[in-house]
Design a protein around this nucleic acid. Structure first.
Lengths: 158, 158
DNA sequence: TATTGTTATACTCTATAACTATA
DNA sequence: TATAGTTATAGAGTATAACAATA
């Protein structure tokens, strides 16, 4: 973004360059950290909208994707991969299990391995297209020349 | 990030290239949208840590920065600039006012203009260095060659 | 002793609806 | 009729502490 005058900025929206009046003096627009937050919030909101008709949210999808790729993964391992405390994972997993998308099978005396049920596996066929559409919409907004660097920068921060 | 083998990725951390085992098969690492979320969460957590000794959080700082740049801004205008519903702004502003960082002055019969109190202005001298350190830490993590494109991409998504 | 799953709790943030007063 | 501030509420996400069972 380029700040042209006090309140006027040039922004890129859907590959179009447009001028936007942010309504006030906005020093936050000069801070990459704040831009990161707003970009993330905007994309999260986009993903949640796209998922709403499936009765899911972005957190559910992250869990399901990881379980799909790692059958019989334990809840603790899941939490570590997602950077979600295992205590906070309990209600999320329980809800997916209540919807019969997950199966639990004992790994040892204290852990259960989580896998997709057949319902869950079938459901992933509806979920993946939504994820792909969301990611595609995200990528499409970014100028082609900037995409590689964008991905590299995100990983560096992650 | 480059996925080398099943669980092994090459990541850039503090300008160093290192190999990391993500502990499991992780398709989420191939999704820029998920990387955006994790990068944002990591940076938000960094900023909150840096602010904790001031008894502030990132939301408080965004509000204070905007008010500093726009004395006598109304709460509604603030909400629009921050993309926070004006209803949700009430407790945030009230808390800052209770700490005597803000002054309210009537604009018309229904709106109050928000400004920094003298205490608030003095406090900004402690806050800005923290913001700058956080932003600097963020920028420093990103390879120099990728920084411009990163900023452009964020604005395109915002 | 350390780890897993769990319960409980508290706080932050977001999303809505509705009400009053004012423009 | 639209806007500003407010109240209330519900849900999502995050952060801790603690406990029982198991490794």
């Amino acid at each position: 973004m380029i700040v042209v005058a006090n309140n006027i900025c040039i922004v890129i929206v859907n590959s179009d360059i447009c001028v936007r009046d942010c309504g006030m003096e906005d020093p936050l627009r000069t801070l990459p950290g704040y831009a990161l937050r707003r970009a993330s919030a905007a994309m999260l909101s986009d993903l949640n909208s796209r998922l709403s008709h499936l009765g899911l949210r972005h957190t559910d999808v992250a869990i399901l994707v990881l379980i799909e790729a790692n059958p019989r993964v334990t809840q603790s391992a899941l939490g570590r991969a997602l950077d979600v405390d295992r205590a906070n994972l309990v209600p999320l997993v329980a809800r997916l299990e209540a919807r019969e998308l997950l199966d639990r099978s004992p790994v040892d005396g204290r852990s259960h391995g989580l896998s997709l049920s057949s319902t869950g596996e079938a459901f992933m066929k509806q979920i993946w297209p939504v994820i792909k559409e969301h990611e595609q919409a995200l990528i499409t907004r970014i100028p082609v020349a900037d995409r590689r660097a964008f991905a590299a920068a995100l990983v560096a921060l992650w």
